[in-house]
C-alpha cells in the first residue's frame, strides 16, 4: 500500500523516533495515522503495517482489537463522539447522546447510509469541566446543548 506523501513523511519521522531495534513502538501511532487516511483498519492495512514494522499480523490484530479508537469498519466522514461518562452525565450527557441518535437516525458505532456521519457513545474524553462535551473526529466541542449539537451537525451537513 502507498499513502499520501504527507503521511509517508509523517510515518518516516515516526519510524525514526524510536531507538534501533524498537520499530514495534511505532505500531500504535502508525495505525492511528494511517487509519485517519484510509478510513479504517482494513486487512490490507494490517498486512502493510505488519510488513513495515516487521512483525506477524497476529500481533497487529492483538493491538487493533484492544484500542477503542481503532476501527476495523469505516466510520462516517464526521465521527460524532458523545461523552456520557460521569461528569458529562451530571450535565445530561446521556440525553444529549439520545438526542444525537435521533438527530442522525443511527445508534452506537453506526454509520448513516450516506457515510457522512457516525455516532459513538464514548468514555471520558478529558473535557469534564466543560460538560457535556462531544468530539467530532478530533475536534472538541464544550458545553454542548441539544441546540448546539443540531447546529454543529447541520453546519457539517452543509460542508458536503
Amino acid at each position: 500500500m502507498t499513502f499520501s506523501p504527507e503521511l509517508e513523511a509523517k510515518l518516516e519521522k515516526l519510524m525514526n523516533s524510536y531507538p534501533p531495534g524498537r520499530k514495534k513502538s511505532a505500531l500504535i501511532p502508525m495505525l492511528m495515522f494511517t487509519q485517519d487516511e484510509v478510513g479504517s483498519i482494513t486487512p490490507e492495512l494490517v498486512e502493510e503495517v505488519a510488513r513495515r514494522i516487521g512483525i506477524p499480523t497476529v500481533q497487529v490484530d492483538e493491538v487493533v482489537t484492544y484500542y477503542s479508537m481503532l476501527h476495523r469498519k469505516p466510520m462516517g466522514k464526521h465521527h460524532v463522539q458523545v461523552c456520557t461518562n460521569i461528569s458529562c452525565l451530571l450535565w445530561d450527557g446521556d440525553e444529549l447522546y439520545e438526542h444525537a441518535c435521533k438527530k442522525l437516525g443511527i445508534g452506537h458505532k453506526e454509520v448513516t447510509a450516506d457515510g457522512e456521519f457516525s455516532l459513538e457513545e464514548v468514555e471520558c474524553m478529558g473535557a469534564c469541566s466543560w460538560a457535556p462535551a462531544i468530539q467530532v473526529n478530533y475536534d472538541f466541542h464544550h458545553h454542548v446543548t441539544k441546540e448546539k449539537l443540531d447546529e454543529i451537525i447541520d453546519s457539517l451537513k452543509k460542508l458536503r
Binding site: V58, Q59, D61, Y66
Partner: peptide, 20 residues
C-alpha cells in the same frame, strides 16, 4: 511459532489464531 494471540479486551477478550 507464535500462532496464537489475544484479541479484544475486557470480558470480550479471546484467543485468536494467526491466519485470520
Amino acid at each position: 511459532v507464535g500462532a496464537l494471540g489475544i484479541i479484544n479486551r475486557g470480558e470480550q477478550s479471546l484467543i485468536t489464531p494467526n491466519a485470520e
